[in-house]
Simulated scan of single mutants.
Amino acid sequence: MPSSTEHVQGVQILRGLAALMVALAHAQYGDVPRSSTNFFAWDHMLEAGVDLFFIISGFIMMLVTDPSSGRAAGPGRFLSRRIQRIVPLYWFYTLLLTVGAIAVPSLLRWTTLTPDLVLRSLFFIPSFHPVNGNIQPLLSVGWTLQYEMFFYLCFVLVIGLSLGARVISMALLFAALVLLSGAIGRETAPMAFLGNRIVFEFVAGMGLYWVYRKGLVTGWAAALVGLVLLPALLWAIGSGAAAPLIESIDRPWWRSIAWGLPALLLAYAMLAVPEMSNPVARAFAHLGDASYSLYLSHVFVVAAVAKVWRSLGYETSPLFGILVALPCCIVAALLSYRLIERPLIALARRVFAATASLRSLILSARSS
């Protein structure tokens, strides 16, 4: 997701890895969406990159508002920073898709363009997709950003509490909202949105930061614990060995258990690893800077590359995703980060600064 002003190498590497996972999950099938999700299939587990993003987000929100950092942001400044980082690039790609769909309607093979859908998408308002029925905006990957914005709004309510109290309060708040959605019924988009257990992965990331600040996530010893347990957990889930146990739990929790737990364990291990200076670590950290661009732009790149690939008489496959589509996605993301994302963030900062200055002038004029 969007880069933070605080750069912990482990977080940057995790960002890069999470974005790669999501991009490859989509690239291996070209531009053909899948009709269902199997939480116990290896190829589907790449979509756990989203769960990893949510955990990272919870961690980062605690990091940038930690009073011990000496530059923790208050509620207003916190939300302002989040909007400046998330909204500009998301609006750019959403509007790019909108304009493209108007010019070439065949681009939207899997959705329907309506003014209502565009407006709801731009302002992160959850709504049922007109074609597949999922809670999903026009830009398909934007559903995660709806949860990001929701998380930020909830996080503001606890930002003044101690780190431990924040974790507990957010867990209780989300639990109350899930119970409320169940009591009212999840037939409407807002209630279905609130009932998704994936929000607890943000809380898991917050808890991970709290443990990290306690000094319990440091050094190779802690990293090895995670790196030893992670393959065992992945095997149990990917092979189906853990399926009976997970399926004995309510289905709404399956994703957070089958994908969220391995993502949390991976984040724990990576954050414990001492800072590295090898080329691979630096490459992933650099990709972490461009992870938001990769996340939003890869759907366009995969669709375009798949179309060209098929025009040459070939079929898309996992091998196509790894060798052809994914490298194109990475190159496009790095260009997007340099040429689009960073300039848009700079522009947003200037707009917010100018608005703040204008507000101050108006207030001064009124008081004089």
Rank of each mutant, 00 (worst) to 15 (best):
V211L: 14
V199W: 02
A41K: 09
E201P: 02
V50P: 05
G70W: 05
H44P: 03
R366Y: 04
L334I: 13
L138G: 14
S239T: 10
G133S: 10
R85I: 01
F284I: 09
F123Y: 05
L97A: 12
V331S: 13
M276T: 14
R166C: 01
A223Q: 12
L326Y: 02
V273T: 03
V167M: 01
L113S: 08
M1A: 13
A354Q: 02
V199K: 04
T37K: 11
A103K: 00
S360M: 11
F202E: 05
L89Q: 13
G226F: 14
V302S: 01
P33W: 00
V273R: 07
V64A: 02
Y152W: 09
A176I: 05
A41P: 00
D289F: 05
T355E: 15
I60R: 08
A101N: 02
G219P: 12
G215E: 08
N134A: 14
P105G: 12
V301P: 01
A354L: 05
R349M: 11
A283K: 11
L361R: 08
G219F: 10
L227P: 03
V308H: 05
T355G: 15
L266C: 09
A165G: 00
G30V: 02
F40G: 01
L224P: 02
V167P: 00
Y93G: 02
L14G: 12
Y29I: 09
P115A: 12
S367E: 12
A267F: 02
G10Q: 02
L224H: 09
F53D: 09
R197N: 14
G76F: 13
P2R: 10
P231A: 07
F352S: 15
A101Y: 06
S3R: 13
W254R: 05
A290T: 12
F40H: 06
F155K: 04
L194I: 08
V104H: 14
A25T: 03
L234K: 03
